[in-house]
Design a protein around this nucleic acid. Structure first.
Lengths: 239, 239
DNA sequence: GCGCCAATTATGTCTATACAATAATGAGGC
DNA sequence: GCCTCATTATTGTATAGACATAATTGGCGC
């Protein structure tokens, strides 16, 4: 850490002062010239330190006026949504996977809506159960748009969970995640081995490649099984 | 977009090729010399384009070997956790706020545990109800460590929701968020006006300034009231 | 062949300089 | 006093060169 390059050090020191509150929002950050003098380096180096801070939104830079600490408005948080197998393993529990059903068909109206398709399209519908120490950990209901990802038709999802396979085989450019709580319907409760009144955490993810819809997946976690945890400092900065 | 600076353009073009899958994980990114030639610019400019890609984790750079497209391991997602008042307003519903209770006391053992305190400490305990169009929207149960944020004792939380006030008055350096689903206990269900079996989304947040615990807040949203939505591209890049 | 060392290559960092763009500031004219 | 314009401070971008650092590669000795 202390051996980092100078521009990283400058960035870290300024970042620290902002995050600690020593420099409150609106406070003026020393001009590039002043930092040049303070650190005894060239302006390019100072610039290389400040430019990423501006890109992160930690500071706002205005020509002629100077640089100022930005006021953080929203809580922006980085959530790591892990691979389920990895998540279970890091808990030290044995991971189990089971393919409940696999169907190739023309998407029903509801499925088309979930995937966000305009017209009829061939989809691969999968239902999988993830287990931790034998207990049901999550139910995965997935639709894959075979027009966008035809290679998925030949993959063997009896052995491999589709999440990891897709990550490795089908590139994507955008994703939307939706996190909610729900009381599941009786058949789902039965599959998960929980009471029908039990609250479940539902994580839905849609992914795109350009304008093509690739997949829609709904992961249902029994209430006690899972927390999503995000540890974080104000903006983007990877700790 | 087309008027962007050259290093941004180079970065965008490489980024696009990676995200579109044209350059799959492991693919070699042209060396700085080659990009220099391709774009007719200096190496510094190429470097300024590539360095942030490496920092984002989109590419991996190895001296002598070259730069390679990284394989995206985890789904990392940026969640905006909005101010509740703002969230309700953007839905076009009138926002209502009510302070249910306010107590200053020495933290109970359980409260100390939730805040993560070692010894006894004076805390401000608040229970607030947020409404959208009159209907209960979220229950806020908050503990504020008065040792770390003594000015909170004098704030008037009967009129101002504590979330916004704290954001504006007490700087923090770190936060932990925890998202889960739960069946709430009867009194909470009554306050929220829902059936005791209804699933609720529970968002807990702890914030620190350095080593000092500042606040712990639990927001309970009735299942149907709220979804957390995150829209995203692979890593950190703000769209 | 095998292992070690040196040459090579690619990235990492920094400097000094240059010119462009932008917007606050102050001076002058009315 | 107020508007306008030139000045100037500050950031934005880019160049060319230099040296540092790391790791692969090829060659040399054995």
């Amino acid at each position: 850490m202390s051996e980092a390059s100078l521009h990283r050090r400058i960035r870290a020191e300024i970042s620290e002062r902002i995050l600690s509150g020593a420099w409150p929002p609106g406070h003026r950050v020393p001009a590039e010239h002043e930092l040049m003098a303070e650190y005894g380096c060239s302006r390019m180096t100072v610039n290389k330190a400040l430019a990423p801070l501006a890109e992160q939104g930690l500071i706002v830079r205005r020509r002629k006026a100077g640089s100022f600490v930005a006021r953080p408005r929203i809580h922006s948080v980085v959530l790591d949504i892990p691979d389920i197998a990895a998540e279970v393993s890091t808990r030290g529990e044995p991971y189990g996977y089971e393919l409940l059903s696999r169907t190739v068909r023309i998407a029903t109206a509801q499925e088309a809506a979930e995937l966000g398709l305009d017209g009829p399209a061939q989809v691969l519908a999968l239902r999988c159960l993830h287990r931790a120490s034998g207990r049901p950990f999550a139910l995965e209901e997935r639709l894959i748009n075979l027009d966008a990802a035809p290679e998925a038709a030949d993959a063997d999802f009896a052995a491999t969970p589709p999440g990891g396979w897709l990550l490795g085989h089908v590139p994507w450019t955008e994703a939307e995640h939706r996190i909610s709580a729900a009381n599941v319907q009786k058949p789902v409760a039965a599959t998960l081995g929980i009471a029908p009144t039990a609250a479940c955490l539902v994580l839905e993810r849609r992914t795109w490649r350009g304008d093509d819809r690739i997949t829609h997946v709904r992961l249902t976690f029994p209430g006690e099984a899972y927390d999503l945890v995000a540890r974080f400092a104000p903006r983007g900065e990877a700790a």
